[in-house]
Design a protein around this nucleic acid. Structure first.
Length: 205
DNA sequence: AACTGATCCAACCGCCTTAAG
DNA sequence: CCTTAAGGCGGTTGGATCAGT
């Protein structure tokens, strides 16, 4: 059977929505058949998760969402789905698109200002350091912030009271992000991330 | 009004992980 | 173990829309 590609029609959306309401989310390999759609399972899943799902939040990112996104991105790297999981109603595609757009804009503005690597230090009010448990150990190899760190396999784990995985850490950080940034994670400060803080500050003025 | 470049974002693609047989 | 199918993810693309001239 020839699979359809490209933009989804309203009819296709309705078929998919009805099918998922009837049969539930998941089992994506069966959805095209059940819904009568000439789409592949991935396309159906993507359409549902990024567009049709009822709790999806549309519109511009609010300041606090951007703030949290920046912090989580710094912590987790390009783990868009994890980051999106901490932003209610936002999808990984939203987060990824937002980040790409901002990064592009930021890089271009730097080029335009003829200061490729030169960063003007700006006073930024960061979360205040607080006392952190002595058992905190974060490896010094940047594994936590590395783009390529694989959370499910052999990456060194962060050990903080009861935190066994990066997922736990991400949850923890939302509650106590201050502490994390006050300790070791800022050792890998990158100029790129610094620019984003600058961007955020400018945005809020 | 027409054109053009910039931006947005939905969608595709390829790869990785996991589970089942 | 190995293979295969399915789910999931991140990177990228390209069409639609917007903004500026």
């Amino acid at each position: 059977m020839e699979l359809r590609k490209g933009a989804w029609t309203k009819e296709e959306d309705d078929l998919l929505r009805n099918c998922i309401e009837k049969h539930g989310e998941g089992r994506w390999h069966k959805i095209p058949l059940l819904a009568g759609l000439k789409r592949c399972r991935k396309s159906c899943r993507m359409r549902w998760l990024n567009y049709l799902k009822p709790d999806i939040k549309k519109g511009n990112f609010e300041d606090d969402e951007v703030d949290l996104m920046i912090r989580l991105r710094k912590l987790l790297g390009n783990r868009w789905s994890l980051i999106a999981g901490r932003l209610p109603g936002r999808t990984s595609n939203d987060v990824k698109n937002y980040w790409s757009a901002r990064r592009r804009r930021n890089m271009e503005s730097n080029i335009a200002k003829d200061r490729p690597q030169q960063i003007t230090k700006t006073t930024i009010v960061r979360p205040r350091p607080r006392t952190f448990t002595k058992s905190l150990h974060i490896p010094n190899d940047n594994a936590v912030t590395s783009k390529n760190s694989n959370l499910n396999t052999s990456s060194p784990m962060v050990r903080v009271n009861g935190i066994e995985s990066m997922e736990d850490l991400a949850n923890f950080c939302v509650q106590d992000m201050d502490s994390i940034f006050a300790t070791s994670l800022n050792v890998a400060e990158e100029s790129f991330d610094f620019d984003l803080w600058q961007f955020l500050q400018e945005e809020m003025i």
